[in-house]
Amino acid sequence: MKFAVIITLKKDVLDPQGKVIEQTLQNMGINSLKNLRQGKYIEIELNESDEKKAKSAIENMCKKLLVNLIIEQYKIIKI
């Protein structure tokens, strides 16, 4: 079973890298751009057929290593 984890900085945490990307796109003439935040994408494949168990294993990985919960938030998506 395969999952994607998307990690982004929390709303209140400054994302300077995202700001630079945003400004560059605006400088390129993309006027409709309203807001941009950047983050990390991690693909994880598990030897587990029970979706609930698999998701809880991924949650555990996020909390223990993949995500710094003080500054980051995450989403788990089955792919």
């Binding site: 945490v13 400054l14 300077p16 890298q17 710094n68 003080i70 500054i71």
Partner: peptide
């Protein structure tokens, strides 16, 4: 900080 022995976080420098 990552072990949790000290609290808070160290972000990228403000001017990148």
């Amino acid at each position: 900080i990552e072990t949790g022995l000290l609290k808070g976080a160290l972000l990228r420098n403000k001017d990148l």
